[in-house]
Design a protein around this nucleic acid. Structure first.
Length: 448
DNA sequence: ATAGGGGTACTA
DNA sequence: TAGTACCCCTAT
């Protein structure tokens, strides 16, 4: 795959919100292969689709498709499924079924159809393939829902529970965790490879001792500013754990959040050497300086895109004055929104990105490198603090039903004061109670 | 994740 | 005003 294709794809995927482009369509148009980079891109696209769907408030069977696709991609990557993924699938499946429980009783055929379509067929296929998405919770819901068909009281109870909230919570958590696991972008990988290559050439050609060489790389890394890749460490090839804990302090603490793939270094960079495209080979004979420049430009270009993805990147001052850019402090020409209805939300500036990209010759030398932004958390639940709801808006008071109290007593007997386990052990009954609620209720039951 | 302090609404 | 039930915030 052409590097530039990948950049374009990433550009679309890493934007916070881009309802005009369907990531899945984009990815299939690009005909990606199965290299590690491509799988990461595919995963990004699925995550973006999930995110867009959440922003639209759509939790439907398309979401189940996405979660299943994500599972397959993660398998290709030999990654384990996260609990949030399994839970998100379980609760989304339930929510999808719940949509068809709108009549008072299960007399209508829609609910039966949904049970058949989602639980018997779709999840049946998952069971056959031995999918990890089939969890105890999922099986419990399956039996509960099927039981509800002939049990009006259970039907009613399920119908009144707030499954959607739980589904959204798990989906949000899944997104957060998966974005974090994605690691560095292809731009960064390219920059990393270039550095590794250059290092290799240096080591072969020079008799420079390791210490001097290393400080040399550190120096260039530092001159990159508080950037996102820990190139110096990568070049040394000594990542002790591979999960980012060992990052050194070249970063200023804000990391890669602007791309939502939070600071996990691409430890595979060296393994992917063979995927380096023909363009790389063309530039191969260039001097050290040339390579360094190219790598630097790649990284700066990435940061620039980040700046467009999230305008908040632009606030603050250029943190590193060591690089001698002829910094143009005049604001970039802002053209009037052509579509009239661009992306609202927090992405007003994102419409300029295309232009910026197309006349890059002009902007290339006159860029102001932005500071990396703070991620915007997805606010999906009015129940969560910091969500869309105003501060001090409380949940309506809801008295505990005798069966809830009973379930709590049983739960404490079984799990002790592990409120989370108690809740998970009886998701139907406690669908509208948080773990803290269970704790509070127990406190007043025992008179503490 | 959990414990504990404290706020709010309600009742007597 | 005190007691109760529920909800929320925050420190650990």
């Amino acid at each position: 795959m052409e590097v530039i294709d990948q950049w374009v794809a990433e550009f679309f995927l890493l934007r916070q919100h881009n309802p005009r482009a369907s990531p899945i369509n984009l990815i299939s148009a690009l005909k990606l292969g199965d290299s590690s980079d491509c799988i990461k891109l595919k995963i990004s696209s699925v995550l973006r689709d999930i995110s867009n769907s959440l922003i639209r408030g759509t939790i439907d069977e398309g979401m189940l498709d996405l979660l299943e696709i994500l599972e397959k991609l993660l398998l290709q990557q030999h990654s384990l499924l996260m609990d949030s993924h399994k839970s998100a699938y379980c609760w989304t499946a339930t929510e999808c079924t719940l949509r068809f429980m709108w009549p008072m009783f299960a007399s209508d055929g829609l609910f039966t159809d949904a049970l058949e379509r989602i639980w018997t067929k779709r999840i049946g296929i998952l069971k056959e393939s031995g999918s990890d998405l089939v969890t105890c919770d999922l099986l419990k819901w399956e039996s509960d829902l099927k039981k509800a068909l002939g049990d009006p009281e259970l039907y009613q109870r399920i119908r009144e529970t707030n499954i959607r909230y739980t589904a959204i919570s798990f989906l949000t958590q899944l997104l957060k965790e998966q974005w974090a696991l994605l690691g560095s972008s292809s731009l960064e990988s390219v920059a990393q490879r270039r550095f590794l290559k250059r290092k290799a050439v240096n080591v072969e050609g020079d008799v420079v001792d390791n210490r001097g060489d290393q400080s040399d790389v550190d120096e260039s890394t530092r001159r990159f500013g508080s950037d996102t890749i820990d190139i110096a460490n990568e070049a040394r090839g000594e990542r002790e754990d591979g999960n980012g804990i060992g990052r050194d302090n070249a970063n200023d603490g804000e990391g890669m959040e602007c791309l939502e793939n939070d600071g996990i270094d691409n430890v595979n960079a060296a393994d992917e050497e063979h995927t380096v495209s023909a363009q790389d080979q063309e530039h191969e004979p260039s001097l050290d300086k040339g390579d360094e420049m190219a790598a630097r430009e790649l990284k700066e270009y990435l940061v620039e895109i980040q700046g467009h993805i999230d305008p908040s990147t632009r606030q603050g001052e250029e943190p590193n004055s060591a690089i001698d850019h002829s910094v143009d402090v005049t604001p970039p020409p802002t053209r009037v929104n052509r579509t009239g209805t661009g992306c609202q939300d927090h992405n007003e500036a994102s419409d300029n990105v295309n232009e910026k990209g197309s006349d890059s010759q002009e902007t290339w030398s006159s860029r102001v490198r932005p500071r990396r932004p703070t991620p915007v958390t997805l606010s999906v639940s009015p129940l969560k603090k910091g969500g869309l709801a105003k501060p001090h808006v409380r949940r309506p008071k809801k008295f505990w039903k005798p069966e809830e109290v009973e379930a709590l007593r049983e739960g404490v007997k079984e799990y002790g004061k592990s409120w989370k386990d108690i809740k998970n052990g009886n998701p139907t009954v406690f669908a509208e109670r948080t773990e803290v609620d269970l704790k509070d209720k127990w406190r007043n039951l025992v008179g503490g």
